[in-house]
């Protein structure tokens, strides 16, 4: 049994971390584009901003469980299968990238407008402002956002158990729900709680250490 739980634990970590990574690869640029193309942004493109905003809101309004099922053909097309932890990464990315984009957007909007103006007064281009001012200045807030994203993706990944997505959630449903083995369900839940705690704590620590304002 311990082996099963250990396997589930590593599957959960694998799904969560890989999904977070890919979702950030999409969500970070997307969130940045949202801030930059805003009508008060450093490179306003209002139509693009509205289009992206609507797409993100649409994706975010679909409950994850439904998205998981709706995306099954898409998942099969990409990974070749719909079960197992690798297959779960697809819907996880689709669900969390827009969420991450919003997290990134709110972090970048916290950056002092005056500092951006100062960079503009030095002749910095929009790209330089993004890379040298906005992202570095928002770093502590981005790291905190990342901790939130990881814990959210972890809890999403547990839901994927319903379609045999692997990981701790899968075990909890298989043993706890279908076979009434409450002890195993409790153990998996406890492990999930611990992982969430751990990621949240680590995120807050790193954010604090990296913040030069205190």
């Amino acid at each position: 049994m311990i082996e099963v739980i250990a396997k589930g634990f590593f599957e959960s970590l694998y799904m969560t971390l890989v999904s977070t990574f890919i979702a950030y690869a999409l969500g970070l640029p997307l969130g940045t584009v949202l801030v930059v193309t805003d009508k008060d942004g450093i490179f306003p493109i209002p139509w693009l901003n509205s289009v992206l905003g609507v797409i993100i809101n649409l994706l975010r309004s679909v409950p994850f469980l439904i998205l998981l099922i709706v995306l099954l053909p898409f998942t099969r097309w990409i990974v070749g299968t719909t079960i197992g932890s690798t297959a779960t990464i697809v819907p996880l990315v689709v669900a969390s990238a827009p969420f991450i984009a919003r997290l990134v957007e709110s972090s970048l909007k916290e950056v002092d407008k005056g500092v951006i103006e100062a960079a503009q007064s030095m002749g910095a281009s929009p790209m330089e402002i993004i890379y040298k001012v906005m992202l570095p200045e928002a770093r502590p807030s981005l790291i905190l956002g990342c901790a939130i994203a990881i814990t959210t993706i972890l809890s999403y990944s547990a839901m994927a158990g319903i379609v045999a997505g692997g990981g701790l959630g899968d075990i909890a449903i298989k043993y706890g729900y279908y076979r009434y083995q409450n002890d195993i369900m409790l153990i998996t839940v406890a492990i999930l709680v611990l992982i969430v705690q751990l990621f949240q704590e680590i995120g807050m620590k790193i954010a604090k250490i990296s913040d030069k304002r205190i």
Binding site: D112, G114, V115, E117, A118, Q120, S121, M122, G123, V133, P136, E137, R139, P140, S210, D211, K212, R213
Partner: peptide
């Protein structure tokens, strides 16, 4: 703009 420096009321330094 590189030949026009500017300073501000709120200093606007990069805090990080």
């Amino acid at each position: 703009r590189q030949s026009m420096g500017m300073i501000f009321q709120q200093f606007n330094l990069l805090m990080q």
